[in-house]
Design a protein around this nucleic acid. Structure first.
Lengths: 410, 410
DNA sequence: GCAATATGTTCTTACTCAGAACTTATTTAT
DNA sequence: ATAAATAAGTTCTGAGTAAGAACATATTGC
């Protein structure tokens, strides 16, 4: 029997529907990412004929996804071009369950967080409790939602591992959730489509689209938190998943062969040598004070006499280890941009030149030439925007689909 | 003045020509990569209607790029489906200038090396000498080329840095070439289109498409040679270039904080700790004997009593350093496959379990789960196929373009 | 031999974008 | 002020695409 391989979906062929869908998605995506864009700009950027762009915009207006506004004051000859903006009444509900609270937000298609409600819980919430809390909050907003908004769906940023298709939470260690079909549970309760994903992935997607990554097609992101260092790789504006969705674990790069044992089983990982707890300790803060870390640390470095010696020394040491990890990564990826979030962003903000020269002096000529560094920009809104992006994604990929999915609520 | 950003070509809109071009490219690409594919398989894999596939295949046949063959013996009910094969008379000329020779090959669209000529040079050849040598060899084949083949162009694998557009050799250190417009020079001499690129990139592209990477959409490749360790990252069957084309420098990952100074300025790089020269030395070979390395080393490990202690120890040490570099890379990329070429492939072949367990024991649970290792498969043909791929690439991307480009020679 | 199955072939249809021609709105030159 | 130049919106036509229906063909299995 001839070995007839099981046909993987290889590359799919294009048909005319794909063309229209793709072009609609491109125009809506430009409006979504940039907030406002003129038809003339769309024409230039896409290379499409202006009659085609006219038709695409008209369809998006018909679908209720964008508005056309008066042109900006023109500063050149020629008829001014109308401005396309995403409609502010297209919204997604963002949900982020944590160990001590559930945060729920209302986010518009333009990326604005219209509402954010933090519901503190006495103990670590179960999936059912989260569903009930979200259900109650959404019920409270329902009147407003139905009268003033069109809700495309719900996005959930879960601190754990989520199966890509189906939205099952495989494991969320801090919540102690295991194999929870959370998307289905919440969708049943709210009668809205629900998309769940890992919180770090959602954060990267938000920071990439609306934060420091704006405009860079390709970058890497490292985030430092209380529990360690994670990250992600963005290529062509998409988070690179790896073969099974685990790509981006920058925390376990070797930075010190003489270093201490990491919980991963290796010695001298970045995550082991560069820790938020060490930073808190040297500043006399404890774990509960992590929100003050930024002010306290940056205040020290802003003083005329500089930081206290042992603080400066620790920051310097940690930045040197971070630079060691980054030089390897820069050599491998040749990235355009490295974004640093959490306490890694703080370290960078405290002494940017230490990191930059640390990487530049040791990376290879070619790759180091074009790399830029930036601190993550999105603060409290990060996870709300990231979760909302999950819910907007299907609409952004296929704008015409909104007609069907919103039939019941329109 | 409103900040009207310079319009990057962002995402291009799809028009109807794009659809046809893309679909033709998909069908030709399937035939090219798989060697033979039935129309029914194409229909399944692309999702296109079978009448559409019929039209696409007919156009490729008209263009002279593929033939349709008798169906294979069917083993199921239904009309047998014709087999599409790339035409063997569509060829590219492959060129690889080195310090002591110029190798020229004739490669068919199906990936077969029809001819390989190694022209030894008394000294390091200048660009002009390479053009003359290639010109003479091609002149010798010209009668055959014109009568029996259609030549799509020339691909050159250069041991140096090549500017992506224009084919200028920025610098080729071992050849001592600097800012040489080599593609233009060779194209003028041969009256054929010429595409030049870095030899390592070409090798990766070949190994990825026709070698150990066949079927893996995503993998990383590390190659060990006399002068060091290079590599590449393949994502969605394309070599990931990074922002300026330097991505893939795996040779300068930290593997030993106590290691020696690398020429890159850092200490303890993979390239410094794992060297072909050390392997040659312990086996009593000198640099000129590098071709014997494979036989001598593998023979030792094939002996019933195993390798000599100091050889086994060195191999073990080098594999441990390689595993250290790979565990970090596996954590970051979560790759499906790691391909090892050159002497790194040899080390792996000598003691595969040392590398595999070395990586698996120290990488994180998630990423290490799905990773496979493989030794590069393509031997002498590697650079010939890689260089030819450069010349085929434009035709594979836009099959209909062959009509125009081959007018003069048809 | 006949039914079932799978594929190739032909023709029609719906839909898409490009482009030409015209209209509208602004700046710049006279 | 007025006209010319410039740039973009609008409308309509046309070329080209893939899908799908209907039919033709070639194989397996009963």
């Amino acid at each position: 029997m001839a070995s007839m391989e099981q046909s993987r979906p290889a590359q799919r062929g294009n048909n005319l529907d794909d063309v229209r869908r793709n072009n609609l998605a491109i125009v809506l995506g430009l409006a979504h990412v940039r907030g406002r864009v003129s038809r003339a700009e769309v024409t230039k950027m896409t290379g499409l004929n202006r009659s085609t762009v006219g038709g695409l915009v008209a369809e998006l207006v018909d679908l209720g996804l964008v508005d056309e506004q008066e042109p900006d004051a023109a500063n050149h000859a020629g008829r001014p071009s109308a401005i396309i903006v995403p409609r502010a009444d297209i919204v997604a509900i963002a949900v982020n369950p944590e160990v001590d609270a559930v945060t729920i937000g209302l986010v518009s298609l333009s990326g604005q967080v219209l509402k954010r409600i933090r519901y503190d819980t006495a103990r670590v919430p179960t999936p059912e409790e989260v569903v009930n809390i979200v259900g109650a909050v959404v019920a409270g907003m329902r009147g407003e939602l139905d009268s003033s908004f069109r809700t495309v769906g719900v996005g959930v940023a879960v601190p754990g591992l989520v199966r890509e298709s189906g939205g099952e939470v495989v494991v969320a260690p801090h919540l102690d959730w295991h194999n929870v079909p959370f998307s289905a549970m919440l969708s049943d309760a709210l009668d809205l489509p629900v998309v769940s994903s890992n919180d770090a992935s959602a954060a990267i997607s938000a920071e990439s689209t609306f934060g420091a990554g704006r405009g860079a097609r390709q970058h890497i992101y490292l985030n430092g938190g209380a529990s360690g260092i994670g990250g992600g790789i963005v290529i062509n504006n998409e988070l690179f998943p790896g073969v099974s969705g685990f790509a981006g674990e920058f925390g376990h790069s070797l930075v010190n062969s003489e270093g201490s044992l990491c919980h991963c089983g290796a010695y001298g990982c970045l995550e082991t040598e560069v820790r938020q707890s060490a930073l808190l300790a040297v500043l006399g803060l404890d774990a509960a004070d992590s929100e003050q870390l930024e002010n306290v640390l940056l205040a020290q470095f802003a003083r005329p006499e500089g930081a206290e010696p042992q603080v400066a020394e620790l920051v310097n040491k940690q930045l040197t280890f971070l630079a060691e990890a980054l030089r390897g990564t820069v050599n491998i990826f040749n990235p355009e941009l490295v974004i640093l979030g959490g306490f890694l962003g703080l370290l960078y903000a405290a002494a940017p030149e230490v990191l930059e020269s640390g990487v530049r002096d040791r990376a290879l000529m070619g790759p180091r030439g074009d790399v830029r560094f930036a601190r993550a920009e999105l603060g409290l809104d990060l996870l709300m925007i990231g979760a909302a992006q999950l819910a907007f994604a299907p609409v952004l990929a296929d704008p015409a689909s909104i007609t069907k999915s919103l039939l019941k609520s329109s």
